[in-house]
Design a binder for these strands. Structure first.
Length: 229
DNA sequence: GCGACAG
DNA sequence: ATCTTGTCGC
């Protein structure tokens, strides 16, 4: 497991973080469709926190997109680098997630984030931010609609409804299990929204959440538990 | 002006 | 995110 410190020059205030988002948001690439769903590698990333100790643990789990078998997995721990502020989540998660990704012995392929990409107040959520910093294709799959609105998707798995910021479609509410609350998919970097949804469906053969985030979630929690000091 | 608000 | 056991149901 890798250990990371807060990077030099990392934003310390909300104002600085907003400035970074403003500077990087123009680098998001939206005119690529991304890797074909159901092929190559798909990597889930997630983090867990210990607020008492101000410690954060991240995990990256690489799955074979066809079999959904684990190909590789890494963890990293570090000091919490930013408070939780809605709209600034990336500054809390990215340093440790980058360390976990860097430790992987193989190419991550598509990266699936637990949170949003373009579905964000300034269209630059965690998945978009991570994509710009790594150059990797990324998508965001969130468990809540945040501040956005949507009509109810049909009840069948695969049904979707636009996730709206006013009239702008920033993502999609996608039903991954019959009759179960949808997930909220948005583009991060170098992937189309249609493909982001197709990948999400390919990753949910049995549960509401993608296998990537389920695996990364349990691994980072375990890494946090196994941490001392 | 007062909430609500990814994880 | 996190605090947390059993329990109802397919």
């Amino acid at each position: 497991m890798t250990t990371v410190r807060i990077p030099a020059g990392w934003p310390a205030t909300e104002e600085q973080a907003l400035a970074v988002q403003d500077e990087l948001r123009g680098e998001v690439v939206l005119d690529e469709s991304g890797p074909p769903p159901g092929t190559g590698y798909v990597t889930g990333v997630d983090v867990a926190y210990d607020d008492e100790r101000d410690v954060v643990a991240a995990a990256a789990v690489v799955l074979d997109a066809v079999s959904l078998d684990v190909v590789a997995e890494t963890t990293a721990v570090g000091q919490v680098s930013f408070p939780y502020v809605p709209g600034l989540l990336a500054f809390r998660e990215i340093p440790t997630v980058l360390a976990a990704l860097d430790a992987l012995p193989c190419d991550p392929g598509l990266v699936v984030c637990d949170g949003y990409g373009l579905a964000h107040p300034r269209r630059f959520g965690l998945a978009a931010h991570l994509g710009v910093l790594t150059g990797l294709p990324t998508i965001g799959v969130a468990k809540n609609p945040f501040t956005f609105t949507h009509d109810d998707p049909g009840t069948a798995r695969g049904s979707a409804a636009p996730l709206l910021a006013g009239t702008e479609e920033v993502g999609r509410a996608l039903r991954t299990r019959d009759g179960v609350k949808p997930v909220f998919v948005s583009v991060g970097h170098r992937v189309s929204l249609d493909n982001a949804c197709a990948h999400t469906l390919a990753l949910t053969p049995a549960y509401r959440l993608p296998e990537t985030t389920r695996r990364a979630d349990s691994l980072c929690r375990r890494a946090l538990r196994d941490t001392t000091g």
